[in-house]
Amino acid sequence: MDSLRNSIKRLNPLSASDSDFLESMPFWLPATALVLLFVYGAIGWNVIISFTGWSGLGQPDYTNFTLEMYRQMPSDPDFMASLRNTIALLVAFTGVSLVVGLGLALLVDRKIRFESTFRTIYLLPMALSFVVTAIFWSWMYASNGLINTTLSGLGLGWLAHDWLGDPRFKLAAVIFALVWQFSGYCMIVYLAGLRSIPNDHYEAARIDGASTLTLYRRIIIPQLRSSTVGATVVLMVFALKAFDFIYVMFGTNPGRSVDILAVTMYREAFSSSEWAYGAAIAVVLFALALTIIGPYAYTQYKRGAL
């Protein structure tokens, strides 16, 4: 039966695929319709709201669309601060996580003992939710928390700071905690990349006279390019979504030094009832996510990987 259907498909691909499309509809249509409505519909509605001036109680006015919300962004110091923080978090968190993850992967890949134990230890933080790690790190960073206590215990009391209160350290503290949580993920991605490099390449490089440093710099790390790109995209998307971590740690008003777009969006919409402005910030966030995912998705599509 199948072979008959296949041969019909070969003879007349158009009608066969049409009938496949119709036949399979009951299976995919309900889910697709729900996704279209609640994901893409909601995004669309959000975009529309951002063009209205909706704020406070009452209904949005769909008769008069303006770009006012977007126009006021550059002059809003809160927005600009959170945009800066978002980008700083994005770049620093992604960069440091990749470097730490690569370092861990190179170490774990050196045929060490208890390799799988180390792998699990490093990967475990990834399995925890942001809420858990945010509370955990608030304790760590507290003025009498583990970090400060350890520092003073070691006679390094002058290094102890109010990590979550001092605007100079807040963002760095958040980035450090996030790096702790995600470098294990980078390690796994890099480890998979390293494992896919055949042993012959290491040996050929040794015969070619490459030092260990050159081996990694010129032969191994360049071959981890696709691992890096994949991990980067995932990390950046997580950085944009770091809302829950900051929200749990600082609440809706973390202060300008650590405010990020996601928190500003939430605060404008749900604390200040500036619905349209919140929606406009959401659109900016969405555009940022698209600029990260878009090129990746496009190159993957070009390579036939999607």
Binding site: P198, D200, H201, E203, A204, R206, I207, D208, G209, A210
Partner: peptide
């Protein structure tokens, strides 16, 4: 290996 004045061709070409 590099000091031995040898060159090797691998089965997988490497």
């Amino acid at each position: 290996p590099a000091e031995r004045d040898i060159a090797m061709v691998f089965q997988s070409y490497a």
